[in-house]
């Protein structure tokens, strides 16, 4: 039964010419939610590969399973069947503590609602992941300040989240996500709560991190401008990848993107 459900699965590998190593790989990834007697199939078997240094946007209507997919590759949830490899490590094989290690060092998370800890200052928020990684407090502070400098908030290190604008908060969150030099940044609609201009700044920051620091970025978004900046786009629908578009196709199809969305 599970085999038969792999509908509309697009070819997993977009570019066969890749000299860059694969950093995220999913193999027949399935996730079922059992609620009473009804089984909801959120993911019906996804095969995909993401290469190091890529900037990928994930698109899909709500209920398509994109959040589930996102959680799977972020090591936040475990699959019902299939495998997720992050940096060639099978996430399903890891125990809770190892998952915590993975989340702490390999992956950075950026949330739509920033999720800063309200009772901590800017610099304290940035150094929380370093504390979890066991970095010496002095070194953590120094590194935190460098990161704040990178996102342009060096002068505001002592502010608490409520004293900052949404854009500043999101930039703090980005600095925090970069705290332990992760390989992957997972962004969940990073500009969803921001106005156009501030959103633009965040986009530029993300692109810079991608280009200058070589961080692989996966971004769930509806923002056209961000989509234009992506290397590839994954369209997710009904628990599977419907289509993968390359950079050069994006320019042409921009108009169609809006048509794909139903929100």
């Amino acid at each position: 039964m599970e085999e038969s459900t792999t509908t509309s699965t697009a070819p997993a590998t977009g570019r066969p010419d890749e000299e860059k190593p694969v950093i995220i790989r999913t193999r027949d990834l399935k996730k079922h939610y059992i609620m009473g007697e009804v089984t909801t199939k959120a993911l019906r078997g996804i095969d995909s590969e993401v290469h190091r240094g890529e900037f990928i946007s994930i698109l899909g209507p709500s209920g398509s399973g994109k959040s589930t997919f996102f959680n799977m590759i972020g090591g936040l949830d475990s699959p019902t069947a299939g495998r997720v490899f992050i940096d060639e490590v099978d996430v399903a094989q890891l125990n809770a503590v190892e998952l915590a290690f993975l989340r702490c060092r390999k992956i950075g998370y950026i949330f739509q609602t920033y999720n800063l800890v309200q009772y901590m200052t800017c610099i304290e928020n940035v150094t929380v992941p370093m504390a979890f990684a066991g970095v010496d407090p002095d070194e953590a502070r120094e590194r935190g300040m460098r990161l704040l400098d990178l996102v342009g908030l060096k002068e505001r290190w002592f502010h608490k989240p409520i004293e900052m604008s949404g854009g500043q908060q999101q930039r703090t969150a980005i600095a925090r996500s970069m705290a332990n030099n992760p390989m992957i940044l997972l962004c969940d609609e990073p500009t969803g709560n921001l106005d156009l201009k501030t959103g633009q700044e965040i986009h530029e920051l993300l692109v810079r991190l991608n280009k200058e620091h070589g961080v692989t970025i996966l971004c769930v978004t509806h923002d056209h401008r961000l989509i234009k900046l992506s290397d590839r786009i994954f369209w997710i629908r009904d628990g599977g990848i419907e289509r993968i578009a390359e950079q050069h196709e994006i320019q042409v199809e921009t108009g169609a993107i809006g048509g794909e969305e139903h929100e």
Binding site: G74, L76, A96, V97, A100, F101, R103, C104, R105, Y109, F111, T113, N115, V117, Q118, V128, P129, F132, A133, R176, A179, N180
Partner: peptide, 16 residues
């Protein structure tokens, strides 16, 4: 809830 979940995303263990 959100704060705790965020902490876990940032690498907090269940024990912590």
């Amino acid at each position: 809830f959100r704060e705790i979940a965020t902490m876990k995303c940032l690498g907090a263990t269940d024990g912590f």
